[in-house]
């Protein structure tokens, strides 16, 4: 069927018809896609890289903390996807503990941010360089 449509497309000069055939072929392609584990893993890779960009580029300490939460979430997506595709619940248990550690880390980190702001009146991490050698 696709071959016939392709020949028709080549033989006709109507742009609307060509677009229609292209759309049909594209939708046929999309119909054959099913979500396997790759899609979730690549989504988690992209989110992780966005978090890395945020940590490296932004200078605001609070936004850096938020980007760390984003990276933890990206790793959680890949753990959950492995867990449900392989039928093993250890991944979801790991996600539970990662969330526990993330909660503790956020509380401690924000306390550090508050005490830093109290001492230096800034959140720019370029100006917070006491420990820099």
């Amino acid at each position: 069927m696709n071959l016939w449509l392709f020949i028709l497309m080549l033989s006709s000069c109507d742009i609307r018809f060509i677009l229609l055939v292209l759309f049909l072929n594209l939708s046929l392609l999309l119909i054959n896609i099913m979500i396997d584990i790759n899609f979730y893993l690549i989504l988690s890779a992209i989110l992780f890289a966005i978090g890395v960009i945020g940590v490296l580029v932004r200078r605001n300490a609070i936004i850096i903390f938020m980007c760390i939460e984003l990276m933890l979430n990206a790793v959680n997506i890949s753990l959950v996807s492995f867990s449900s595709f392989l039928g093993n619940s250890s991944g979801q248990i790991f996600v539970f503990f990662v969330m526990t550690v993330a909660a503790a880390e956020a509380a401690i980190g924000l306390a550090i941010v508050i005490s830093l702001f109290r001492n230096k009146e800034t959140l720019n991490i370029d100006e917070i360089n006491i420990l820099k050698w």
Binding site: M34, D36, I37, L41, I42, I46, S84, F85
Partner: peptide, 17 residues
């Protein structure tokens, strides 16, 4: 990461368990 995931896991786990 994307190429590793794509070529490492394509077609192995096609549906949820």
């Amino acid at each position: 990461l994307g190429t590793t995931f794509w070529f490492g896991f394509s077609g192995k786990y096609l549906r949820l368990a």
